[in-house]
Computed example of a mutant assay.
Amino acid sequence: MLKELLLKNRSYRRFYQDVRISACELADLVGLTCYCASGRNAQALKYKPVTDSVLCDRVFHNLAWAGYLKDWDGPEEGERPSAYLIQLLDTSIVENCLCDDGIQAQTILLGAVEKGYGGCIIKAFKNESLREVLQLPEHLKIMYVIALGKPKENVVLEEMKDGDYKYWREADGSHHVPKRSAKDLII
């Protein structure tokens, strides 16, 4: 069961934008993080859900998409995320979340896959502009933007060849992701 979720959990970058994710569904995904391990048990991560289409558009214009695809500026209108969860570190609790950010982001994406959605964890964003769009107080630091929606693209996992880990796209839009084998990960 877990392996099936992991195989479906890809970095999706194109979505059926008209398939909306409700605030309730986002709250359910955030709720999963309550069960995650937390360094020092600080539990300092919080989330800003974004479901409104106008605000989603404003968030979208503050993101960078798929760094290896140099000729692609991100999903076109109609293929953009229908929701976002903005992961925030509450620096009034701690200054560093250790590894909590990755644990929780992965948990959210696995939960999204279980609901028939998919997403992409984005670290490339215009920090100050995005903070302004979201009207965030100073003590909340943006860690990641988790883009969510109903996936519209075909992601193909393939064996990594010659150490080339860069993902790529075919003319038909299929997104190829090279992966190392388990034997290559064991020393």
Rank of each mutant, 00 (worst) to 15 (best):
Trp72Thr: 04
Val133Trp: 04
Ser11Pro: 06
Met1Pro: 13
Leu26Cys: 12
Tyr165Val: 07
Asp28Gln: 15
Thr51Gln: 12
Val155Phe: 05
Glu170Tyr: 01
Leu2Cys: 02
Ile103Ser: 01
Met160Leu: 06
Asp71Gln: 13
Ile86Met: 03
Leu45Ile: 13
Val156Asn: 00
Arg20Lys: 14
Glu128Asn: 15
Glu95Met: 13
Thr91Gln: 07
Cys97Val: 13
Asp101Val: 09
Arg20Gly: 03
Arg20Ser: 06
Asp172Gln: 11
Glu153Pro: 03
Asp73Phe: 00
Gln104Arg: 14
Ile122Ala: 00
Gly173Met: 08
Leu63Cys: 08
Gly67Ile: 00
Val145Tyr: 03
Val177Leu: 01
Lys183Arg: 14
Leu29Gln: 08
Met143Pro: 00
Val156Ser: 06
Gln87Thr: 08
Ile93Tyr: 01
Arg40Lys: 15
Ala27Ser: 13
Ile146Pro: 03
Val54Pro: 06
Ser92Pro: 04
Cys56His: 02
Ala124Pro: 10
Val59Asp: 01
Cys24Ile: 14
Thr33Asn: 02
Pro151Glu: 04
Asp18Arg: 15
Gly173Thr: 06
Ala147Ser: 13
Asp164Asn: 15
Thr107Trp: 05
Asn9Lys: 14
Ile186Gln: 14
Lys48Ser: 05
Ile146Ser: 03
Asp52Ala: 08
Asn127Asp: 15
Val156Thr: 09
Leu98Pro: 00
Glu138Lys: 13
Ala23Lys: 15
Leu7Met: 14
Leu29Ile: 12
Ala37Tyr: 10
Gln87His: 03
Asn154Gly: 00
Lys179Val: 08
Leu69Gln: 08
Ile186Ser: 11
Gln17Met: 02
Gln43Leu: 08
Glu4Tyr: 07
Val145Leu: 08
Ala105Cys: 13
Lys126Trp: 07
Leu130Ala: 01
